[in-house]
């Protein structure tokens, strides 16, 4: 099992995530796992009782999870947002920008490569779900 990378200060949720359907059926779960075909917006009415949302990437080339993450952050979700599955070094920086703050890759990542990936981009062109200031804002500040 590969290490989970976590970029939050709070304590991790200690129980497993349930499916979106199960979450919507039962009232006490605080951790849920989104599959690529799930509609993240179904969770929006229930964000206050969520502490962990896992977004599954069964294959790294399926980018639906990036939209799921941003939608949740745009809706005000501030709990842990964890990318799980086929999570690779070269996708980490974009995932972080979409609001992920934890990563549970299937395969162990080289931490030097991870650090390099997060330090790669001196700036960003777009406003996204992170706190980075877009280049256009810097140009006209």
């Amino acid at each position: 099992m590969a290490d989970t990378l976590r970029y939050r200060e709070d304590e991790p949720v200690d129980h497993p995530a349930v499916t979106v359907d199960a979450f919507l059926d039962q009232s006490n779960a605080s951790a849920v796992r989104i599959e690529p075909g799930d509609d993240a917006r179904e969770l929006v009415p229930h964000l206050e009782r969520l502490a962990l949302v896992e977004v599954n990437f069964p294959a790294f080339g399926d980018g639906r999870g990036y939209s799921s993450a941003r939608i949740l952050r745009e809706a005000g979700y501030d709990g842990e947002l964890r990318a799980v599955g086929d999570v690779l070094v070269d996708q980490l920086a974009y995932m972080r920008r979409c609001g992920f703050d934890a990563f549970e890759p299937d395969q162990q990542l080289d931490m030097d490569d991870v650090e390099a990936a997060f330090d790669r981009w001196p700036d960003v062109y777009q406003k996204a779900a992170d706190t980075r200031t877009p280049i256009w804002a810097k140009r006209h500040s």
């Binding site: 980018g63 990036y66 939209s67 974009y94 979409c98 981009w121 062109y125 777009q126």
Partner: peptide
């Protein structure tokens, strides 16, 4: 061009 370059959400369409 600038908006679409390295777009974090739309790089695995």
């Amino acid at each position: 061009r600038q908006w679409s370059s390295f777009h974090p959400e739309f790089s695995y369409l």
